[in-house]
Nucleic acid binder design. Sequence first.
DNA 1: TTGACCTATTGGCTAGGCCACTGAACCAGT
DNA 2: ACTGGTTCAGTGGCCTAGCCAATAGGTCAA
Lengths: 238, 238
Amino acid sequence: MASSSSGTNPLFPGRLVRTRLYEQVAEQITSWITENGLRTGDRLPPERELATRLGVSRATLSQALVALEVIGVVAVRHGDGTVVTSSRTRSIVQAIRAHADRLPEIIDTRDALETKIAALAADRRTDEDLKRIDEALEAMEADIDAGGRGVEGDERFHGAVTTAAHSLLLARLMDEIGELIKETRIESLSQPDRPRTSLAGHRAIAEAIRAGDADAASDAMHAHVDLVSDVALLREAR
Amino acid sequence: MASSSSGTNPLFPGRLVRTRLYEQVAEQITSWITENGLRTGDRLPPERELATRLGVSRATLSQALVALEVIGVVAVRHGDGTVVTSSRTRSIVQAIRAHADRLPEIIDTRDALETKIAALAADRRTDEDLKRIDEALEAMEADIDAGGRGVEGDERFHGAVTTAAHSLLLARLMDEIGELIKETRIESLSQPDRPRTSLAGHRAIAEAIRAGDADAASDAMHAHVDLVSDVALLREAR
DNA sequence: TTGACCTATTGGCTAGGCCACTGAACCAGT
DNA sequence: ACTGGTTCAGTGGCCTAGCCAATAGGTCAA
């Protein structure tokens, strides 16, 4: 399909995603919102008018509005109209800003889960687990040495530790809030000197796990999460 | 507006939200997915059929699918069909049930979450929160005095503490594994003398929270979870 | 075996229409 | 003057009906 030498390239791009009309419409609406500086509470034009202007049917426009509603950009009110609920657009940083008040919750939750995970990992880690953890550390260090922020290595490290805890349930819950954590991670590692400090924290955690010292692992993870939580956004927010 | 003595009651319920049809449809679909244990890659029925079965128009169903797509539950593929993309849809509860010997994991997870929750509750509890906690304790005691096991009071207590932590995210995760905990709870409280011991544990937790001592609350909760974990199911399992 | 082609199935999108809700203007009774 | 009901224009909610477009899988010839 799609004319290609198949199967050889492991990174072969998957099925190409066809943009649906409603997606384009949704994007046009959001950019229209930002361009015109619409704020929370401002009204969008009536559906009929908007549909005509955008050159799509009301049904399609309606789909776009559903999408925007799910994301939390607009609120559609029967009989009244459509109003903007979040003036911010979609970049990651801005997304965090929009959820600035949720950030502390994410950190609390992360602390709860990862502290326990670290302790369990110290008890249960296999040699295989340790190997994965070390690899993640090396990858992170190499990335930082090369001038990167070590975001991917950071992610791998925490993933490896989670695996080492050998608790399907905890892993699932971590996965559940993974997206949220990712946002804070990028923000945190963007601060100067932070990647190296973070790496040191990882080392301490890894050593405690290697030594099989559950309490030390738990404490080290707690300290690490604490450090990572100190992001600019949090200080700015309220 | 809406015929009311305005402004006097600060807790007056806001504008009531009208459920749109697509929301109900989306929910029905997700529960259908979980009930039938559909996994990533499994197909949903064709839109036309699904719409007929659910008794809605294709347009509405389409809106529901857009919503589910945005959330990341399904992928709609032109000309091919609709497939489930998120294994997460399938609730954690079911995933765990599949392996009966996962009980230790439930306890680990419960410990991770509730220990943190207790600490947060000690920091953040309002008078209202304390009242709810006390009420739960009283209910549990009354039930035990009457010869019951205090299951409901136990549940209320932990719910009240979770509320007092004022973290929506942690509350949500607790809710996720609530079903699983319930089973261990009933099992635990069925052992002789256990209800009274458990009640004492609750009291210790409540006092620490009332005193605002996060560490003590955390420790007390940990001890309590530890105690509760000593159930027959655990000993039997493997 | 390969590649081109057909075709049934399935989603994408439109058009047009009726119904339900909201808010504001208006009116009547107190 | 105030309250409460009524009306009505504007707006979203949802439906029916239909055609278009993409996909997968089969068929058949080279």
